[in-house]
Design a protein around this nucleic acid. Structure first.
Length: 819
RNA sequence: GCCGGGGUGGCGGAAUGGCAGACGCAGGCGACUUAAAAUCGCUCGUGGAAACACAUGCGGGUUCGAAUCCCGCCCCCGGCACCA
């Protein structure tokens, strides 16, 4: 082998090894050994028509390195891939071209799969799953039935942005100043019957169990804030002159004596009854305006507006009469949709009171006495109660407890916990999603399929029988949203209506959102072909939780919260035994275009992985993406830097061509080999791939200096390199005369003793400035170091005549002399 | 506004209390070549001939010693944003 010319030709070796792995079944997940398991998972992609983006291989390479490393370390590794294939783009394409979304999806999956195979990822392809396949949909629907059985899926009339002209519901982002973004048509907030999942029932568990996961701190904080737990009190204010009361939620019951008015959200049902005739016209106008604004528009203007209803409420702590207003800064969706307003201690209430000339009463003070001058802004900090009757002088925390207890005793309130988290709107009026497996009785005189009038009893939902799953989508000619808010599927009358025992029924025509399939796919990978159950409990016990989960930070809340929610429901149903699905989570950073801007078609700065593989090879792309910087960092693409990585791989083949089977590494090389093994091993464990690659470059550069290179050294290099550049690793291993596959070789071990130098070079500082270096035995003591330093003529001169005031000796690191 | 992350050569980055700039890109010089590319070698923070001085967003502090720790400020990126 020595001396043979071995040019590195990725175009030849990459397909060669991909074919070998496929035929050899190298990456099939081993089952049933007593070796430790590792489940390494990527966030599976939506197979878009644009094909793979260079951002995809970043996370996929990182997990692939860990998977290949752990196999070499003796783990049983599960590393699967699949397709999150329901979604809007395929449906939009269908609306424009008439192509069935299934055809588009099949084509796109083929492209993605070709591209992933081209990059040499070590997936166990026998476990490939597709969220749109009937096999998979069956179990997504099955989980929905579990949610329904447990009362966690319910119907609710919730306000949506309905655009009659476009015949569709719009997302908040699509509504601008009450008009549709496309076309400028009026948009109305109308209540629409939707399926909703009761994620709020799991709010506390979703919060508590974040403690136990190894996730980025920022993601945990985002989830905590999304759930938004706050503790406070519910307080009841009676309405003067009515047999009614207003419930409010407050985190500051200690400020009750400062409540100088109340505010109802415009949607609040009591608005109607508390409004006096004199105020009715004004109130109606305000309510109408608020209704036609989208939530986003309501929140975009910070200016406080509102009107007096004419009604008065009684403050339960002191019997004071306070005016009741309506204002859109109070949100119908949070708390009780009504507040007690304390302008002295809440900035929003302060602004509203100032704008409308409402009195401001200070009830909390830093000093313990009320201010002499009017407040310029709300004092929101805690302090000591003033102007609060018998509670005066109490600290905020103690006041809260006492007044809450007193209110409870008086039947006027109680402690309460509130969340920002809302129940999850699970309905889409779209085609390309999982049909919701529910049907309803129909009241009709004829055949509704033929156009007879009908009434659907939505109040009597029935679950589709498990034996009828999967409930498949009907075939349609037209996928456009229509006039019927029931959704696209409502037009498939033959599918929608059916008879059973002589009675007519109608299927639910809403479909599930795209999140549904990705909520549980990590489970199906464990048992992808099981027709009896979504995942056998033995396999769930063996493989869960996912040990490493890598994907974009854009999923920090939605996907990662929804999946945790379903997992907990499945835990309660006995399907899984771990509380959490994903133990360690890592977000890969975004790769920007060469211009430092986000890659986009419009900017023309998109890099296509196919082009890079053609020009440099898959291994160069993989190593480049790992070498760019820390995995989590956002970093700009730079094509000329890939050339450097390619040069590194070229040099690996150059040194391989100088392999000398009988040569032995000398002491210096032995030390470098052990140091490199240690560095690469530690860096893979910590997912610091950029510095691992740097260490392999250093080793390769040293080997370049040798004429005859010990084969043993090259074998170690190949083993370290192979998780990063698997094709090159296999090829070098074979060139060295070993049988494939290098994946079956054990990870090289290092001896810490052999990593150490016998002698170390230590900088000598005078007064903190480096003035010289001394070479010392590695375990030299302070006296030896000082003697060596004094022996240096230039140092002796500098120290002359000055007594040493202090000597700092950090063994093996530094000698600092203070003169 | 609030929360989180970050700011180091021409560029990507390394160093997390102990020699700032590992590794790579780009650049410069040289070898090989008729020439170029490729490859190989050397060089490469700024000022200075050198000794040396200065240098990790800005200002202060702690320490024998700070890119790293603390305080204040500026800027960039991401998230949330009237949540009572």
């Amino acid at each position: 082998m020595a001396g043979a010319m071995t040019r590195y030709d990725p175009a030849a070796i990459e397909p060669k090894w991909q074919a070998f792995w496929e035929q050899d079944d190298t990456f099939r997940t081993p089952e049933g050994s007593d070796r430790p398991k590792t489940y390494i998972l990527d966030m599976f992609p939506y197979p878009s028509g644009a094909g793979l983006h260079v951002g995809h291989p970043e996370g996929y390479t990182a997990t692939d390195i860990v998977a290949r490393y752990r196999r070499a370390k003796g783990y049983e590794v599960l590393h699967p891939m699949g397709w999150d294939a329901f979604g809007l783009p395929a449906e939009q394409h269908a609306i424009l071209t008439g192509t069935h979304p299934r055809d588009t999806t099949t084509k796109n999956i083929a492209t993605f799969k070709r591209q992933l195979k081209m990059l040499g990822f070590s997936y166990d392809w026998s476990r490939e799953i597709d969220t749109t396949s009937p096999d998979y949909v069956k179990w997504t629907q099955w989980i929905f039935l579990k949610l329904f059985e447990r009362g966690l899926a319910y119907q609710s009339e919730i306000p949506v942005n309905w655009c009659a002209a476009l015949g569709t519901v719009l997302a908040n982002e699509e509504v601008i100043n009450g008009l549709s973004e496309r076309g400028g048509h009026p948009v109305e907030r109308v209540p629409l019957r939707q399926w909703v999942l009761k994620i709020t029932a799991y709010a506390d568990r979703l919060l508590e169990d974040l403690e136990g996961v190894d996730w980025p701190n920022s993601t945990r904080i985002m989830q905590e804030e999304w759930i938004g737990r706050s503790e406070g009190a519910e307080v009841r204010f009676d309405v003067a002159g009515h047999d009614a009361s207003i419930e409010v939620f407050t985190t500051r019951p200690d400020t009750l004596f400062g409540a100088t008015f109340m505010v109802l959200a415009p949607e609040h049902p009591l608005v109607e009854s508390v409004t006096t005739d004199a105020q009715r016209a004004q109130v109606d106008t305000y309510v109408q305006q608020a209704r036609n604004k989208s939530e986003r528009d309501r929140q975009s203007s910070k200016e406080k507006t509102g009107v007096f209803t004419g009604g008065l409420a009684i403050n339960p702590v002191n019997g004071a009469e306070v005016p009741i207003y309506i204002a859109d800064y109070v949100l119908w969706g949070y708390g009780t949709g009504a507040i007690m307003a304390v302008p002295a201690h809440d900035q929003r209430d302060f602004e509203f009171a100032t704008a409308l000339g409402i009195p401001i009463i200070e009830v909390v003070s830093k000093s313990g006495t009320a201010s002499d001058i009017p407040l310029q802004e709300a004092m929101i900090e805690h302090g000591v109660a003033v102007n609060s009757g018998k509670y005066d002088g109490l600290e905020t925390a103690e006041f809260k407890e006492r007044v809450t207890a007193d209110l409870q005793a008086a039947g006027k309130g109680r402690a309460r916990v509130e969340y920002k988290l809302r129940d999850w709107n699970f309905s889409r009026q779209r085609y390309w999603g999982e049909p919701i497996p529910v049907y309803f009785p129909v009241e009709t005189e004829g055949d509704p399929r033929a156009g007879a009038d009908f009434t659907i009893r939505y109040d009597q939902p029935k679950a589709v029988d498990e034996s009828e799953l999967p409930l498949r989508l009907p075939e349609l000619d037209d996928y456009k949203p229509g006039e019927d808010p029931a959704g696209v599927l409502a037009r498939a009358r033959d599918w929608r209506f059916f008879q059973k025992n002589g009675k007519w029924f109608a299927r639910e025509t809403n479909t599930m959102p795209q999140w549904a399939g990705s909520c549980w796919y990590y489970l199906r990978f464990l048992d992808p072909h099981n027709p009896e159950t979504l995942c056998s409990s033995e396999l769930a016990q063996r493989w869960l939780p996912v040990d490493l989960y890598v994907g974009g930070a854009e999923h920090a809340v939605l996907h990662l919260l929804y999946a945790r929610f379903w997992h907990k429901v499945l835990f309660d149903a006995g399907v899984v035994v771990t509380k959490e699905p994903f133990k360690k989570l890592v977000h890969q950073g975004m790769i920007l275009g060469e211009d430092g801007q986000k890659m986009s078609k419009a900017r023309g700065n998109v890099v296509n992985p196919d082009d890079i593989v053609d020009a440099f090879g898959a291994d160069s792309l993989r190593i480049y993406e790992m070498f760019m910087g820390p995995l989590e960092a956002t970093k700009p693409w730079n094509t000329s830097s890939i050339a450097g990585v390619r040069r590194f791989l070229d040099r690996v083949f150059t040194v391989t061509s100088r392999a000398a089977p009988d040569a032995e590494p000398d002491d210096a090389l032995t030390r470098l080999l052990h140091q490199t093994i240690r560095k690469v091993t530690e860096d893979i464990e910590a997912m610091r791939f950029n510095t691992a690659i740097s260490a392999m470059m250093v080793l390769t550069n040293e080997l370049m200096k040798l004429e005859e290179i010990p084969s043993e050294a090259l074998g170690i290099l190949a083993k370290l390199l192979h998780p990063f550049a698997p094709h090159a690793g296999e090829e070098v291993w074979e060139l060295l005369g070993h049988p494939p596959s290098i994946q079956r070789e054990a990870w090289p071990a290092y001896d810490p003793a052999l990593c150490e130098q016998d002698e170390v070079e230590v900088p000598v500082q005078i007064n903190g400035k480096v003035r010289a270096r001394i070479t010392l035995p590695k375990d030299a003591n302070e006296a030896q170091a000082l003697a060596a330093a004094r022996a240096l003529p230039n140092l002796a001169a500098q120290l002359e005549g000055k007594p040493l005031r202090k000597i700092i000796w950090v063994p093996g690191k530094i000698l600092n002399l203070i003169a």
